[in-house]
Design a binder for these strands. Sequence first.
DNA 1: CCAATAGTGTCTATAAGACAGTATTGT
DNA 2: ACAATACTGTCTTATAGACACTATTGG
Lengths: 333, 333
Amino acid sequence: MAGKGRRAKEIGADGGDDSAFLAAYDPRDFPAIAVTVDIVALTLRGGALHVLLVERGGRPYRGAWALPGGFVRAGQESLDAAAARELAEETGLDAAHLERVHLEQLGSYGEPARDPRMPVVTVAYLAFAPDLPEARGGGDATAAAWIPVSRLALAAHQDGRTDRTPPGGSAAGDRDRTAGISGEPDAARPRPSEQGPGHGTDGGDSVPRTPDDAAPGPDAPAPLPLAFDHARIVADGLDRARAKIEYTPLATAFLGEEFTIAELRGVYESVWGSPLHAGNFHRKVLSAPGFVEPTGATAARGGARGGPRARLYRAGDAALLHPALLCPDRDGS
Amino acid sequence: MAGKGRRAKEIGADGGDDSAFLAAYDPRDFPAIAVTVDIVALTLRGGALHVLLVERGGRPYRGAWALPGGFVRAGQESLDAAAARELAEETGLDAAHLERVHLEQLGSYGEPARDPRMPVVTVAYLAFAPDLPEARGGGDATAAAWIPVSRLALAAHQDGRTDRTPPGGSAAGDRDRTAGISGEPDAARPRPSEQGPGHGTDGGDSVPRTPDDAAPGPDAPAPLPLAFDHARIVADGLDRARAKIEYTPLATAFLGEEFTIAELRGVYESVWGSPLHAGNFHRKVLSAPGFVEPTGATAARGGARGGPRARLYRAGDAALLHPALLCPDRDGS
DNA sequence: CCAATAGTGTCTATAAGACAGTATTGT
DNA sequence: ACAATACTGTCTTATAGACACTATTGG
């Protein structure tokens, strides 16, 4: 809470007004922790989901990939503003591009040893971006790049949280079950799908993928480890993204101003990692009021290998989808 | 992110190992912010939803009600652990009672001026508790008590976010709309109910209430203002709670070990603030696998004014409900 | 007895999913 | 020509919600 003041200098038992009290207040009397924001920025490139990462120039984890982010300027900016600022700084994107980015808070992470240097609490943010130009890499990062999520080493996740949900008895899976105080950093996903026994880091990523989204084959480069606890943050962000596009029209945030239903379907297939029935998807999108609205125009050309020109749509004004577009196979009904 | 180290003392450009680097590291070089946890603890008492509040003993907001919480012990505990510790401390509940409490992270709040004394970032937690004994009030709070949420002044809420949410001009309501960088502290509600055109604040408090849940009538005491930004945090917590019981069996966390379907229905009616059809609710609960399982026993006596003895159930092993129990009237379908 | 309640059955409207079918395009 | 694609229609099944109905209890 803001202000229990357990260790504050209480001046005068009852006398004095607040201004005098505040003037005599020494913030250093409070235990302070470094607070950062980290951004899980997602985008679609070539039909595959990518996350924005920076290569660390400093210790620890020098040379490793990490989420873009940085310190919150104490007292000068809100958490939201800090996240927006860091995203802009580290990507070098201009305001015009950032305008089209959806940014929302994901959750906070504060394990005591998550940063070997000192206690650091990070407030993670999740961003949905349309296909942006190559990132620039600012700050002290040596590089910034959009990395396919399929290349990441996302411990016990790729197949775990994505499409099954045996409520068995797993590490964090059942912590919030019936009894016991339990933490759950994300808590956002409506149908998150936890999972079975704790395979610490089983290699197999069994996420079915759309053809374009090349899963890392046997010849693929080794999965990229992430610095700090960023693998978990990315995993939580992906969970949130998968859940969020079910109930909100945010999938359109991955696309340009105008798009076809097929392109929108591509977003869902990439984020969910499973192919969707084109016909049924089409009907469902159009049946959700306010999801999309026709522009009247049609695409310049048909599909890659033929077909009629698709109608173009833009994002509607709905904030929530009703009925929702439920992800198939998230839990066996 | 944890560890950009922009202002860190970089010892040696490339030489040295991490341990030497860490030894020379001075955490004070980093901008530090006070980090607290605040808990929105909800319970049901007499058919009405209550939130645990403490009366502030210190400045500012002395004498006002606030959320229980306190500083995170930097480097010694995780955020989850801090929340559990503070909840125990401030309520004086023993481990046996805390065992049955569900605790999950709600979101972080870091407006620069949210605490007049200094920059404070708070990580809010949401707790679901069965009817607990009267709170004790520890720490520097002069008192702790379970307060009916209907007595709180929850800005633009009681009628705003509960069953409608004009994205119009309200504080954070439309910030996450289609374009622009935007924050959204909660982001959890699957169907939070946004909605059409921005009717700013039409008077009608359209939340239907179950008979017991006395809405503050004309003779009711004045609504309780909360310290800091705690009104918003509570509001976000209620939103989360309303959304969460749709997709998870967490409503059982408000009840004892064994309960009847009618008692479970009471939880939903109290949290959602609208009466439910008894027959349909009954069938839906039993049709969701793993939601509840029969104990074989029956209640000691029938309803308050007659009726057969109800069967008793305990919480099942499902982590998610399928099909979900959708809240009626969240958005006009 | 009477009113309230627990629990079940029935009916309708809606939605999901599987599938078929038609028209339009690129190769 | 052929294959792929956009889009629409149809059928089956599952679910939500409204309502009726029976049985059982407390007052």
